[in-house]
Simulated scan of single mutants.
Amino acid sequence: MNKEPLSQQELQGMAGKPVFCPEMKSFGIIKCETIGQWAGIPFLVGVWHNEGVAVDFEYNIEERKLQCYRI
Rank of each mutant, 00 (worst) to 15 (best):
Glu62Asn: 09
Gly16Gln: 07
Lys31Ala: 09
Lys17His: 11
Pro18Asp: 07
Pro5His: 08
Leu11Gln: 08
Val19Tyr: 07
Lys17Gly: 00
Gln12Ser: 13
Lys25Val: 14
Gly13Cys: 02
Arg70Val: 03
Val19Lys: 02
Gly13Trp: 04
Phe43Ala: 04
Glu23Pro: 00
Ile30Asn: 06
Phe57Gly: 01
Ser26Asn: 03
Trp48Met: 12
Tyr59Val: 12
Ile30Thr: 05
Lys3Met: 13
Pro22Val: 05
Thr34Tyr: 12
Val53Leu: 11
Tyr69Lys: 02
Leu11Glu: 04
Tyr69Asp: 01
Gly40Gln: 03
Leu44Gln: 00
Cys21Trp: 04
Ser7Val: 09
Trp38Leu: 03
Gln67His: 15
Asn2Pro: 04
Leu66Gln: 02
Ala15Gly: 01
Gln8Pro: 02
Trp48Phe: 15
Asn60Gly: 00
Ile71Tyr: 15
Met24Gly: 01
Lys25Met: 14
Pro22Trp: 04
Phe20Ala: 01
Lys65Gln: 14
Glu4Val: 13
Ile29Thr: 10
Gln9Pro: 00
Asn50Glu: 15
Met1Lys: 07
Arg70Ser: 10
Val55Glu: 11
Cys68Ser: 09
Val19His: 03
Asp56Ile: 08
Cys68Gly: 09
Arg64Phe: 15
Val45Trp: 10
Leu66Lys: 08
Val47Glu: 12
Val53Lys: 12
Lys3Gln: 13
Pro5Gln: 07
Asn50Phe: 15
Gly36Tyr: 09
Gln12Asn: 08
Gly16Ser: 05
Ile35Met: 04
Glu58Gly: 11
Ile71Gln: 10
Val19Glu: 07
Ile41Gly: 00
Ala15Cys: 03
Ser26Glu: 08
Arg64Ser: 08
Thr34Pro: 03
Arg64His: 14
Asn2Cys: 10
Glu23Asn: 02
Trp48Arg: 13
Ser7Ala: 10
Trp48Gly: 09
Lys65His: 14
Met14Arg: 12
Trp48Glu: 12
